[in-house]
Design a protein around this nucleic acid. Sequence first.
DNA 1: TTTCGTGCAAAGCATTTGCAAGTAG
DNA 2: CTACTTGCAAATGCTTTGCACGAAA
Lengths: 136, 136
Amino acid sequence: MDAADRLRHRGIRPSQQRIRILETLAGTKEHPSADAIHGALSAELPTLSRTTVYSTLDLFAGKGVARRLALSGSELRYDADMRPHVHFRCRACGAVSDLDGARAPSPPRAPEGYVVESSQFYAEGLCPACAAASRR
Amino acid sequence: MDAADRLRHRGIRPSQQRIRILETLAGTKEHPSADAIHGALSAELPTLSRTTVYSTLDLFAGKGVARRLALSGSELRYDADMRPHVHFRCRACGAVSDLDGARAPSPPRAPEGYVVESSQFYAEGLCPACAAASRR
DNA sequence: TTTCGTGCAAAGCATTTGCAAGTAG
DNA sequence: CTACTTGCAAATGCTTTGCACGAAA
């Protein structure tokens, strides 16, 4: 299923901008911020505005096409991979990645009355490259 | 162990401001933002500046006295409870709380090379009050 | 025609920084 | 005396809003 179909499926009209934004997001593992996506596409779509990127990502998050990452940082980052997995940020280099080898913990069971719609797991520390650098 | 001792223990000089900031943070379950703490203390310490609150909370996070919460929101929130537990935010009312009944999932095991220093669990949905309201 | 999508510019807010004055050891 | 803390003001940076034009249904 291509990007346009994914969008139609969720009731989103597949405009050129939306298709490219989704393809960009789905085609990277870097969990880019809105601004990073804007930068990546601005050569190809010179008139693409930040406003459109922001509102599009917000739309995606609301429709379940992408998720807003919960990171204790300054900028919002997004991920088009909706499967449960663990996110990791290196406190040295700041890179956000998936902790691929780690099995995602099963989501917490909610106490009576709560309606849990989504949950995320987040770890912080040193990535292999920075860990090696700090040992030297 | 009181707030001053907790600070000394971590190598932080217990100034009046730091003590009150820690007491305020430890005395609430609301996971306040820096600005909320500043507001809560400004009547008592009229000269307390936002700068001090921000830098103090940052210091606490670095020394393991408090943790910065990973929430997909705009403001940084803090928690002085360092035990593993699940945080929950209601998408309707915005309140952040602990998911007390939920057992914290065991932290993900890190793949070779990664150094995981801390991990957090975060759920989003509707709190009991808002869930009840939305059913009506 | 009526609604939806886009883009520009301006505004908004939380946070950080530069710097000077005050305080503790 | 020397290093650490504090606080003000200004700056920064990400995100949102208001508004108008253009495109799609």
